[in-house]
Nucleic acid binder design. Structure first.
Lengths: 184, 184
DNA sequence: TTGCTTACTTACTAGTAAGTAAGTAACTTG
DNA sequence: CAAGTTACTTACTTACTAGTAAGTAAGCAA
């Protein structure tokens, strides 16, 4: 594997999370990596190609994480998901969905499709986690697991957005209450 | 009042909600209103000035709405807030906070400050609404009203982001479950 | 050693961004 | 009626955007 290609994706991921997809340029990637913007275009001909790669990496990281968690009790699995978001919070990041969804209408159909897939994957996982946890009496909640999953995901997503505006304690309050709500 | 100035703010509001602050240009405003981009700069010298005006208008609309609702039972007040978001959902909009928060780091300190004020205002109102509703036995929830308010707001905010990606039924499921959770 | 591929650089284009200076027509005010 | 103000237009600048064409140095493959 090329080192440079990975570095570009990593930096693009950070830039999307901090500034947003439409607010960073190839220069913002090329300069810190000490290459020319044409080098970025060599690896990712269009900005959409780069965006696709960033989303792809995120989906791989997610699948890898949940696979590692699958033997744990459901409440711990969900707490670990909250931890992933907490780390982003303290790194000054928002989540990919939270950053890309507002820009959705400005993105290529391929990027939109890939974002859809990412959303489906996370909803499906949280839904299954909640369903199993409810069967095991580890989780208690009203309504369908699918509806509850949407609430949990929307809490996590927006907690990062609110934390950016109101400070990281907003994240902690949401993350704590969210897990507590499911316990009783 | 000038008609043009109002039209510019209204259109900018729509563009921020649909494309994001960094993805629209003065041309996107000037062309549909059949004026030159310099006319927009006449009313709003910098893009940040325009952004400030959009946020200011939103805050005024919010204050006006909640004032009109103040005699209603708290559950109805909250349901009306959900309705405001529902209308945005079906208009293809995200909320201002949801659009501006991801771009926060790219905005001027003044815009950031104004976004902070907007966030504080909405959190304060929801907190008070939940507190009163709990006293009246209209709402039932665990934890502090402040924490619960953050959860409600994050649900509403992200429901619009998720609806954009997953379709409007995501909003409906979140909005319904959210109100139901507070009833029992 | 010849030729092909990889990973770039150099140098450029065409388009668009925000922003401005100067001018003007219409309206308002003393 | 004269002077100023309002709400623009015309014409422009500077800076940056994504993207490309052509060249090159290093490595590998037959």
């Amino acid at each position: 594997m090329t080192l440079m290609k990975d570095k570009i994706v990593t930096l693009a991921d950070k830039l999307i999370r901090v500034k947003g997809f439409n607010a960073f340029s190839y220069k913002d990637i090329a300069d810190p990596l000490s290459v020319k913007n044409a080098a970025v275009h060599y690896h990712f001909p269009s900005k959409a190609d780069l965006g696709m790669a960033v989303i792809g990496e995120e989906m791989q990281r997610f699948q890898h994480s949940v696979q590692q968690w699958q033997q744990l009790p459901e409440e711990e699995q969900l707490a670990l998901l909250v931890d992933v978001f907490r780390k982003h919070c303290y790194a000054g990041n928002v989540c990919l969905m939270g950053s890309l969804a507002p820009d959705y209408e400005t993105l290529t159909p391929q990027m939109q499709e890939k974002i859809n897939e990412m959303a489906e994957a996370i909803v499906e996982w949280v839904t299954t986690c909640l369903e199993k946890g409810r069967k095991n009496k580890r989780f208690h909640f009203k309504g369908t697991a699918g509806d509850r999953a949407l609430l949990v995901i929307s809490n996590l997503q927006s907690s990062l957005l609110l934390a950016r505006v109101m400070g990281p304690e907003a994240f902690d309050r949401i993350g704590r209450q969210l897990l507590e709500d499911l316990r009783s």
